[in-house]
Structures are given as structure tokens and as C-alpha cells.
Write a protein that binds this DNA or RNA. Sequence first.
DNA 1: GGCATCATATGATTTGAGTCATAAAAGCGG
DNA 2: CCGCTTTTATGACTCAAATCATATGATGCC
Lengths: 198, 198
Amino acid sequence: MIDENLLLNHGAKRVAYSKGDQLFREGESAVNFYQVASGEIKMNNYNEDGKEFIQGIFSIGQSFGEPPLLARVKYPANAEAISDAEVFQLSKEQFLDLLSSNPKVHLKITETLAKRLYYKAIMVSEISSQEPEHRILRIIDYLKQHVGKVEEKYGYRLDLTRQQLADLTGLRVETVIRATKSLEKKGELQIKKRKVYR
Amino acid sequence: MIDENLLLNHGAKRVAYSKGDQLFREGESAVNFYQVASGEIKMNNYNEDGKEFIQGIFSIGQSFGEPPLLARVKYPANAEAISDAEVFQLSKEQFLDLLSSNPKVHLKITETLAKRLYYKAIMVSEISSQEPEHRILRIIDYLKQHVGKVEEKYGYRLDLTRQQLADLTGLRVETVIRATKSLEKKGELQIKKRKVYR
DNA sequence: GGCATCATATGATTTGAGTCATAAAAGCGG
DNA sequence: CCGCTTTTATGACTCAAATCATATGATGCC
């Protein structure tokens, strides 16, 4: 998370989106740096037959969309607001300027990328080999670091539909429903009022 | 790729490994930065029942193992020499010092991480979508950027066994054999003398 | 409150990658 | 050149997740 004032001093704009709005699309050139000011943004892909895969969900303070900016490639996924949301937006030039003028920020960004890479590495090996239950537990652990909220009674709470969980793991809804039920029975997961706890 | 002399000036050691040697193991703390001087290094995981998953293969000029250094987490995978190999090795302190004293190198590292993240994002969505043929073509495209060699006649050449391809995609050997045969029939791949061309 | 929409649930069936077994071919060392 | 190991190849069978169908349960809203 980069300090709000620092961003604004470097010319950041605060932009508002409504639920469902797209910020950018897969295949487009990267022109902006984004940091979430409020709400939640997801990045996703759709495969040939329309099935969605959610790359990640970003909430307040988290930045996204830097890799294509730095790697000089097209966006590998779409970005869409999953609630009404506001983001700080910097142009590529402003962003690169910020990096070079502020080594601390640069290091922070590098660390963020490193952390994301670390989790993707874990994800990719889990997804490639494991059974549905492992995949689900893994993605939940991953999300806990990011979008989870702590709740007194049940621990971490995730507001995710089974469909979203399916899209995050590459499984089908029915499979996720059956797997989460099984995990609940085993006591590895708790479900209350459509919320998932762990 | 960071300039060899720059690395040596910052105290890098040149270390030799024999085929099969392990450089570090999953779960260990990250203490070094590595850049391949010669040969090839792979990073891999083994799941509960011993099945291997190859995270990546790194050859001359490529660095690896930075994410845990920067994200302050344990290694998510093992590193093993798949041929006799030499690496430049910097301690964590030397590496961080190099980053802060040399913004250009820092930016280069950031770009490398961004690039790897970009490919992992693509990989993870492809892998989750299941079809073996897609997974194979994707990993081949990915490797072309890295370990592929251009050959006059047939384009890019990859020296990979079907088993390695299986470990890179999370599939089984038999599945890879059948899928590559099918791809060859469709003309999307060429196989000559156990080498894969695209 | 009643209707429409979205989410969860569950059974029946299909399908394709995994598994197992076995064989042939290619590469390799002495 | 000859065994030995590794890699590729193939057929038969299994099984679990995808698919299909359909129902029930929440939630929101006019």
C-alpha cells in the first residue's frame, strides 16, 4: 500500500466505478497503475466456452495491474469492480517517475510483486495436482491474507459465493458445494448464512 | 540478467554444482540471490504422493529465488541442478545492498518479477481450465521465452522428455504422450528424435 | 407480501484423465 | 555389438469431477 498523499502528489486521480464496471480488458495495453481506495476489484479471465477464472480479488490499499506496466506486455486478464469502488490511478509515466524518485516505494512494489509471485507459485502447484478439497482450502488461506475479515466467533470470514470459489479454483459450482460440505463435516470449515469461516 | 562483473564487484561467489545437486529446499529460509552462470536449474515441488511439479527451469543469465528474499517468506519450492551448473551467489545483504545502490538493477529485477508474474497468471488460468493440449502448448510457449533454442529447420526446439512436460503441467506421462501425438497430427507441434519443435 | 432472481442442494449420467500392465524403441556404457 | 536403462507407446479399465436436470432455499425489491 502506497501512501495516499504520496500518490496524489504524483498526480494520481481518484476514480469511481460502479459494481460491474470494467477497468481494463485482457489484451489491452497497460497504461495505468491502480490502487484500491474503496470497494473491491477482481481480475479474471474467460476461457473459450465462457467459464470464468478469477486471478485475484483486491481490496482497500492493494495495488493491481503493475506487472504488464513493468513487463511491457498486454494485460493477461480483465479487471472488474465487484462492488462500487474507487481507485487511485496513475499514468505509466507518473508511476515510473514515482518509482525512480522514491526508492522506498520502489522496494515496496518489488516486495508486493515478490509476495504475489510466491503465492502464485504455491497456487499453481496446488491447482495442478490436488483434489478439490485441497484447492479450496488453499485458495481460502490465500484470500485470508487479503480480503478476509476477522470475526469474533468463527475466525476468518469470507464473503464468497460457491460460484466465486469455483471460479477461483477452476472447479465447478456443484463440485465446490459438495467439497465444502464435506470439509464442513470434517470440521475444517464452517459455513453460516452463506459465509465461509475458517 | 545482471552484469557478471557487477555481481562480482558486489561480492558474488561463483559456485559449481553437479547434476542432481540441490541448492535449497522447500521450507528453508531464503539467504541467497542466485543467477545462473552455466547449465540449468529447475525449481520444483513434490506433493504428498511423490508426484513432482516443476515451477520453472532457469538457464544462463536468469536469476531465481528472489521472491522469498524480498517477501521474507520461506522457499515455496526446491532448486536442483538438472545439468552440471554454475551460479553466481549473493548473500541477502549483498543483494539488498546492490538493489539500493543501483536503481537500474533494481528496476531490472522488478521487471523480471513482473514478467514472471505475468506468465504465472496465464499459466494458472490455463492449468485450471484443464484441457491437456492447452496446458502443454502454454507451457511450451512459456519455455520458448526461456530455455528454447532456435533451430533453422523447425523453429524453436525444446529438449524435454515427456515426463518433464508432464511435471511442468501437472499431467501424467501417458496423457502428455497422447496429447502431444494428437497435437502433432494437427500440425501444432513437431516432434523429431524426441525433441519438441514449435 | 408476493414475485423474481440468485444461490444452494442433490441425484443421475457421462466422460476423459488417471492408473495399470506391458511392450517396443531409443540411447548409453563397456 | 550387446545388454541395461530410459523413454515412448498403447490398450484396458477405473473413477472422480464435469455435466445435466431439477428442486429447494434465500434475498431483494416494487
